[in-house]
Design a protein around this nucleic acid. Sequence first.
DNA 1: AAACCATATACCCATAACGGAATACGTCAA
DNA 2: TTGACGTATTCCGTTATGGGTATATGGTTT
Lengths: 115, 115
Amino acid sequence: MARAATTTDAFNAVAEPRRRQILDLLAQGERPVNDLVVALGLAQPQVSKHLRVLREVDLVRVRDEGRHRLYRLNAGPLRSIHDWLRKYEQQWNARFDLLDTVLADLKEEEADGTD
Amino acid sequence: MARAATTTDAFNAVAEPRRRQILDLLAQGERPVNDLVVALGLAQPQVSKHLRVLREVDLVRVRDEGRHRLYRLNAGPLRSIHDWLRKYEQQWNARFDLLDTVLADLKEEEADGTD
DNA sequence: AAACCATATACCCATAACGGAATACGTCAA
DNA sequence: TTGACGTATTCCGTTATGGGTATATGGTTT
């Protein structure tokens, strides 16, 4: 088997930095493709392809306006990532390693009676 | 160019479900590889390979204990994901779509005077 | 030293990514 | 209708994935 498709879920879709940039831009409001092309400095086909991936995991929605296609953010699927991360929130400060060390030190002192 | 390596950053490392499972297991405490093998129902080499990826992005740390290698979680790098997500937290309820719709409706009514 | 246990690495395969370039499609203007 | 514009799709090449299986490495016990 190969790596899971980028369209599998939000985790995979968002692993690509350009796609995060696109979402960041769309967070400011609806935009046509060409706006994104300019803002990202990417070729238009690549942008369209990234948008397709984002559409497939429902991170963006489209609306046709004449010959333009206006993309907008749909942040909902990001919630699954946030939910998964929640259980780690208390651990990022690496406090636990520190705590371990401190506790070990205390235990030693207590055991050998050193000041 | 191909997809960014899984070892590029936490985003890519964590896109693989098995690796998230591994982190979930390690969240409960330090464990030797074989524990994970049993818990995941995966073959040992695959687990070692996933652990390598997680080590390379510093999401896990290792400690040698005789012939065992005890892996433990290092949640720090997850923070970068959380930080990126933060700007979207207020948008998950899709309230903005709703707002768009309402505003559009109001505009229409205002324009054509139809009740 | 030999046998054994725990883990890591090497090699193979099928799959798909991403960027580039060319082109197809759909809408609007003249 | 023809042409221009905005966007999507197709095809290509390079790269690396993740699982499978075999094997290497390192520590422990006898």
